[in-house]
Design a protein around this nucleic acid. Sequence first.
DNA 1: AGATCTACCTGGTTGC
DNA 2: TGCAACCAGGTAGATC
Length: 280
Amino acid sequence: MPELPEVETIARGLDADLAGAEVRAVAVLDARVAPSGEGAVPKAELPAMLEGARVLRAWRRAKVLVLDLARPENGLLHLCFHLRMTGRLTVEQPGAAPRAHTRVVFDLADGRRLFFGDVRRFGSCRALRPRDLPRWKFWAALGPEPLELSPAAFADLFAGRRAQMKSLLLDQHVIAGIGNIYADESLFRAGIAPRARADSVSRERLEGLHAALAEVLREAIAANGSSISDYVDSHGDAGAFQNDFRVYGRAGELCRVCQTPLVRSTVAGRTTVWCPRCQR
DNA sequence: AGATCTACCTGGTTGC
DNA sequence: TGCAACCAGGTAGATC
């Protein structure tokens, strides 16, 4: 489940490996992962647009991985990937054969290949010209980046809202990049119950959540992300942060702080694990 | 505004 | 062993 730390890890890996590389050919093996519409470059035009383009950089916004590509004739193009559940982007050696769930293959001039794979096909890939990026509805509606917010600005996001804390953390319009893992982990570290109504949480505790969230995201990025089942980085390697989970996936096990059995319930439609004693 | 449900998709796990 | 049921989860859209 690539969330902010996983996508950030992939972006850093791709930026280091691909900046300056030239795309020679693009093969879309499964057209369903390459949507058109909303200003996206139509599928049929994609290969022609990308052939001969050079990768300028790879970066991340929310859970979206963006490859900036440029070709003198038609300028800058943003290639946006949303990995959803099982998407992966890996740099492969020359001659590597597509695997069972490889959906798009980018052949580079130096022989290497970039694979976009996705078992469940929830992921997507779209090419947008710069003027169309802000017109992509999903992109335009994204909330702020959690690592770029002041504590006060973070607390403001929750002020006066009656929804459950976890529901707001998962809402990409409120704050971007948080998924099930980091919602649970940050709420535990902040001592806030997932079901707590936002307007019942003091400003001080909201700022504490901001600190907890920034801390867990930074630790996860430093560990190259969390690998539960599918996630790997751009080299195909697993992350290590799953070894540091305090609540996610630990229902029934003991709280590392107070030894109370961790509880599992459904909050905001998602499986949620929390400590009934530490989180109020 | 917010909660809940369904759909999308497929591999892995569990239960009979 | 075989097979059905269920689960994981990000997002969109419908409904109450």
